[in-house]
Simulated scan of single mutants.
Amino acid sequence: MTVQKTDVVIIGAGPVGLFAVFECGMVGLNCHVIDALDAIGGQCSALYPEKPIYDIPGFPQISGAGLVEQLELQAAPFKPVYHLGQRVDKLEQPNGVGGGFRLTTSKGNVIEAGAVIIAAGAGAFGPNRPPLANIESFEGQPGGCGVHYLVRRAEDFRARRIVIAGGGDSAVDWALMLHGVAAQIWFVHRRDQFRAAPDSVAKLRALDGYGLDIVVPYQLDALEGGNGVLTGVTVKTLEGQTRSLPADALLAFFGLKSDLGPIAQWGMELDRHHLPVDPANCQTSVPGIFAIGDVATYRGKLKLILTGFAEAASAAHAIYPLLNDGKPLHFEYSTSKGTPGSGVKA
């Protein structure tokens, strides 16, 4: 068994986890990053890669994908090691409390670290699949075809016939963004009321009949096609009336199911699937394990990306003395310290 060693293991490669790489690097700590998704970015990449975000300091507007790209570049000088498409199945303290951690992933990677930062949002997450026969055979098709639960690039769906199912913000937002890109959009929902923002719903209704048809009250009933090639989607009313919609792709937006998974078995105090932390340093009830971002909770917590960024800095600064025999950190601003390759000298 090959054991990889590092200072800190970060669980979660979303924006907050990526910024934690930077903050750890700035105090001289190396990081390995583990994420259940096949790509970095977390929910930013999975749910709204092309949707604008307005509350990131210094960026009046930036897309989810753009934010992740910038954070990856910011972390790159510190050479993080990414373990993607896997989750942490086991966490041990072979040398007892204070002696570091050994983590084993679902792909068999074994990593030893002095501290752990959990930046896993609400845990490992995946799509809520609609109960359709053989749906798995249509998943993962390239070029804007087949069944998808997220959109990475609107351009992938150019000139495609698309069925969008769902009534929340994700479904409505992507219908608006793909209008004019797709050849035809069928927007399917079980009732003529939507959970999305009223302004977005008004824009959706204004497009009805202009390259976008609102199909209500219908729900998904079956997929048409074979050998992984989708040709249409059958929808049905509660009374049993069916309709066939010709389609190259189905975008099913029924939310994500999240699960802390094995994290919940690591002996930490839990509060409704969240990890209570000391707001001064973001340490959980287990010494050496820290939690930041949406998974962390404390009184007065604001669930914002920028809050998670600040928590990443607090955790990194708290970990430094833990891994350096209690030696206090001589804090320096980035303007004087610089980063590897920046040319700035203290």
Rank of each mutant, 00 (worst) to 15 (best):
Q184I: 10
F101P: 12
A75I: 03
L18M: 12
D248Q: 07
V188E: 14
A171F: 09
R102K: 01
A280P: 01
I111R: 09
L84D: 06
I162R: 03
F101Q: 08
D271S: 14
A39M: 08
L238N: 10
L323R: 15
W174P: 08
P340D: 15
P130G: 07
V286A: 11
A65K: 15
A20H: 02
R129A: 09
I214A: 08
P130V: 05
W186Y: 14
Q74T: 03
L238W: 05
T307H: 14
I214E: 08
G226A: 14
E92I: 00
A197E: 15
L270H: 05
I289K: 05
Y320A: 13
G225Q: 13
S258K: 07
Y333R: 06
G211F: 08
A159L: 04
E239N: 01
G288F: 02
F254Q: 11
L18T: 03
A197V: 12
T297D: 04
Y320T: 10
A346D: 11
Y298T: 09
V235H: 14
F187E: 13
S336C: 06
Q86S: 09
H32Y: 14
D213K: 12
C44Q: 07
N281P: 00
N109S: 12
K5V: 04
G300P: 10
A39K: 11
I164E: 15
E136R: 09
G143V: 09
M268E: 13
F78I: 03
A159K: 09
A296S: 10
G225K: 13
G255R: 03
I53M: 13
L84T: 15
A316K: 10
V344Q: 14
R153S: 07
H148A: 13
L230H: 11
V9R: 01
K90N: 02
G267L: 11
G126Y: 08
E50N: 11
N95C: 07
L132V: 13
L329F: 08
R102C: 02
G14R: 00
H179P: 01
L230F: 14
L37Q: 15
L245Y: 01
V188M: 09
V216I: 11
G114D: 11
R158E: 15
F331C: 05
S258Q: 06
R161Y: 02
D213E: 15
I53W: 02
T6G: 09
F194S: 05
N324V: 00
V3K: 12
P80Y: 07
A39E: 13
A291Y: 00
L323M: 06
K257M: 10
A264T: 00
G108P: 06
G140I: 00
C282A: 13
V81I: 14
H330M: 10
E92L: 10
L207M: 05
M1F: 06
A183W: 01
I319S: 07
S244L: 14
E23S: 11
V216G: 03
R205Q: 15
L47Q: 14
D271M: 13
V229W: 04
F138P: 11
G121Q: 03
S170R: 10
W186T: 04
Q93W: 00
G96A: 01
L91C: 08
F78K: 13
V172G: 07
G166P: 11
T105Y: 01
I11D: 13
V68I: 15
P246S: 06
F125A: 12
G226M: 07
Y149L: 04
V286R: 14
